[in-house]
């Protein structure tokens, strides 16, 4: 057969062919796997750049009560102090594992039921597993609307 006539092909050439073959297969594989890996990553949803929202209307909240509002794609928590005048607004996503927190009027604290995390009214983490305070938002009352905004210069 043909191979019998070949006397010891040069190892260098064989190695080079091996390199081409292996490299070619690797490149082919990469050209398959790369689009698949990219496909896994969902397209970026344009964050509508929400920096300010109307969280509620004056009178919606009773003193020492709270409401959840949409802040872009995340929930926020608006609390009306027991004095009936001061509003607090924080992110409602627990800094521990992302559950939505709630305000407990009797204890005057923000509580996450998932793992018993507790924050004070200003969103500072007080006890339980939360590692960081809740993001604090600014509150402005204009007319009968309560605006919540985040600090954009950061």
């Amino acid at each position: 057969m043909c191979s019998e006539n070949v006397v010891n092909p040069e190892p260098v050439r064989r190695g080079l062919i091996g390199l081409f073959l292996g490299g070619g297969l690797l490149a082919t594989f990469a050209s398959f796997i790369y689009p698949v890996l990219r496909y896994f990553v969902p397209p970026q949803v344009a964050d509508l750049g929400v920096d300010e929202v109307v969280a509620a209307k004056v009178g919606d909240l009773k003193p020492n009560a709270s409401a959840i509002f949409r802040f872009g794609s995340k929930p926020g928590l608006l609390i009306l102090d027991a004095d009936g005048e001061t509003y607090h607004a924080v992110s409602a996503s627990c800094t521990h594992l992302g559950c939505t927190v709630q305000y407990k009027g009797d204890a005057k604290e923000i509580w996450c039921p998932c793992h018993n995390g507790v924050y004070n009214m200003n969103g500072a983490n007080v006890s339980g597993p939360p590692p960081r305070p809740l993001q604090k938002f600014n509150v402005h009352v204009r007319g009968d609307q309560i605006f919540v905004s985040r600090n954009t210069e950061a």
Partner: peptide
């Protein structure tokens, strides 16, 4: 409801 609070006792 993505904008509801987590229920107590979850």
């Amino acid at each position: 409801d993505p904008f509801g609070a987590a229920a107590a006792g979850i």
